[in-house]
Write a protein that binds this DNA or RNA. Sequence first.
DNA 1: GTGGTCTAGACCACT
DNA 2: GTGGTCTAGACCACA
Lengths: 117, 117, 117, 117
Amino acid sequence: MTEWQEHEPIYIQLAQLVLDRIIRGTLAEGEAAPSVRQVASQERINPLTVSRAYQTLVDDGLLEKRRGIGMFVAAGARDRAISNERQRFLEELWPQIEARIRLLGLSADELLQGGAA
Amino acid sequence: MTEWQEHEPIYIQLAQLVLDRIIRGTLAEGEAAPSVRQVASQERINPLTVSRAYQTLVDDGLLEKRRGIGMFVAAGARDRAISNERQRFLEELWPQIEARIRLLGLSADELLQGGAA
Amino acid sequence: MTEWQEHEPIYIQLAQLVLDRIIRGTLAEGEAAPSVRQVASQERINPLTVSRAYQTLVDDGLLEKRRGIGMFVAAGARDRAISNERQRFLEELWPQIEARIRLLGLSADELLQGGAA
Amino acid sequence: MTEWQEHEPIYIQLAQLVLDRIIRGTLAEGEAAPSVRQVASQERINPLTVSRAYQTLVDDGLLEKRRGIGMFVAAGARDRAISNERQRFLEELWPQIEARIRLLGLSADELLQGGAA
DNA sequence: GTGGTCTAGACCACT
DNA sequence: GTGGTCTAGACCACA
């Protein structure tokens, strides 16, 4: 069971988790995504919430619905996911992170060593 | 007027903005924070929402109420704020950020140096 | 419908009532607290006011939110509540009460018999 | 400088303090109460607030205003104050206190004896 | 003028 | 159905 963030809708967080698995390759292209019911029971959330998460990925063309069978990772999903996420990270997130690092007076050393340790 | 993020409550975002100003020193210790009504009208948000933001800072000991007069930046607020935020960043946020950087095949090293360039 | 004290905010009084029920055990651990709307309509107060009361109990770890389901009495809430309240009573309230008893020249007999009568 | 309670108006708390001094006798009958200005500056509160506190005591017949001179403790003030406060304590406060003691599983008997110890 | 509390009523995310 | 957030507007205590 995942710990959910307070203010972000669960379905968005869940979509992100699936997306990460696609990028990581632990959910390979052509492979079936875990069924809505399975995820819902594992994570103890409502099936509707899982459905919504999957739907956002379908909308992004990363998952494909095959009626009566389930959801499958689309062809080319991994490359597209990486490219999208990289862009989003570099353009939206990193500038904010960098600003915060400067505001807090943190050094590259502190950050890199902390991470390496 | 500030642009607000989608999912994060305004009062939390506002509290963060004030906190940043305390850290930056543009809101100095002993100084009066802008009044609830003033912020409310400037930001076009409800006074109650501003109140809630301020309350979280009072709870953290960064602001002090003086009845009938206003809210003032507490003594030692800046140091405490910096120390709290650094800890939160290094322990909670940075590990996640670093994981994301790795996941996307980016290099923290380069990103951090890029920031200096 | 409860009678509210003059100067104490309703949300604090309400939180105290719920806390007392937890201590008394009439609101058992794991049980759902009455819903915000239900309390609001029963007590003829605003849902926001009820929410605030509940939030203070969540902050104290006595209630747990389950998204979309409701508020539940946390595990171990009763013991923690009793222990907290005892400490608060003995350290903060009782010394003041005792001072007042002495100031008014009241005797243990008067007090105990009055109560028994 | 006194520490004020959060939710009780300062003027009521202040009136109580003066009343206590009258009961204690440190503010004797016929004696002048400290001037509004003096109290206001000592307690760092607004003179208006002090005035209001004094006014409630005037209304109760415990203080007398002598124009241009100040406020004086009324004749018989002490006896009346003690009698009023005793009644209020025994009828209003003590029953609540006793209920709380029982709720918390404490013993009024022991608490009262402990005070003597 | 300051902040605090409350109401009535709306919309959102989640079950 | 659940709680969370926000608005608009009122009144109170205090300076």
